[in-house]
Amino acid sequence: MKVVLQRCKEASVTVQGEVIGSIGQGLMLLVGITHEDTDKGAAYLAEKIAGLRIFEDKEGKMNLSVTDIGGAILSVSQFTLYGDCRKGKRPSFIAAARPEQAEPLYNRFNEMLREKGLVVETGQFGANMDVALTNWGPVTIVLDSPSA
């Protein structure tokens, strides 16, 4: 799994003109899933994300997690994270898991985050989505699950 994590002041996702998920301060996650991904990798990333200290404490140091600040998560599936652009001008998405494999793991990953006490809003798997966020910092980090 690959997650692009952005610390945000607010974020939302809209499908066909309707806002289907929105949060205030917290984390915006773009989540990509490949063929070898498992629940173990999802659990690793959920644990890492819940405890990642990227919010500032009273001294201005990145020392607090999304859990510590009572923030929320907006999680959006993003198969294009596995786009391969090394050849030609059109990305190949052969490394991205097929929807029938990716969607259940994406849903399980979000449930793992909820089990850690986090509020998790989501986009709509497979839909064309308009995603908006106010990146806070900006802070953007790319996380990968360990190899299977």
Results as ranks from 00 to 15, higher is better:
Y44M: 05
K61G: 02
S12D: 04
I73N: 09
T14R: 01
T67M: 11
I94P: 00
G26M: 06
G21S: 06
N63R: 13
A42F: 02
N110P: 09
G17V: 03
N110I: 10
Q101G: 06
A72C: 11
R98P: 10
D144Y: 04
P138R: 10
A148C: 11
S12T: 07
R114A: 09
N107K: 13
G21Q: 07
D39R: 12
P104V: 13
N107C: 12
A97I: 08
F109K: 01
K87S: 13
A11S: 13
Q6M: 05
E100V: 10
G60P: 11
E100D: 09
G137H: 15
K89D: 06
D144Q: 12
E100Q: 10
H35I: 00
P146Q: 12
P91F: 10
E10Y: 02
L45R: 06
G70P: 08
H35V: 06
A46N: 04
W136L: 13
V4R: 00
A46D: 04
M28Q: 14
Q124K: 12
A127V: 06
I23A: 03
Q101C: 10
C8F: 04
H35K: 13
D37G: 08
T140H: 02
V19G: 02
M62H: 05
M1I: 05
A132S: 15
S145Q: 01
F55N: 02
E115H: 12
Y106V: 09
Y82F: 15
I141S: 00
H35M: 06
L64K: 11
T38I: 15
G71Q: 09
A132C: 14
R114S: 09
R90C: 14
I33C: 03
L45M: 00
S92E: 04
E103V: 07
I49M: 13
I23S: 00
L133F: 08
Q6H: 02
G137D: 11
A96C: 00
D68I: 02
S65N: 10
K9I: 07
G88F: 11
L52M: 14
D37P: 07
K116L: 13
I23R: 01
Y44F: 15
A50P: 12
D130Y: 11
V142I: 15
F125D: 03
E10T: 07
T34P: 03
G26F: 00
A43K: 11
G126H: 00
V19M: 14
E36T: 08
S65T: 03
Q101Y: 11
A95W: 10
G60V: 14
G70K: 12
W136F: 15
S77G: 09
K61L: 10
L64N: 05
S77N: 01
V120D: 00
G123L: 01
A127D: 10
A43Y: 07
A43G: 07
L143C: 13
L113P: 03
D37M: 03
V119T: 13
V3S: 04
G83K: 04
M62R: 12
G17Y: 05
Q78M: 03
R98I: 14
A127G: 04
G137T: 09
P91G: 04
A148H: 14
S65P: 08
N110R: 07
E111L: 11
G83V: 03
F93T: 07
M62E: 08
I20M: 08
I20Q: 06
L27S: 01
Y82W: 06
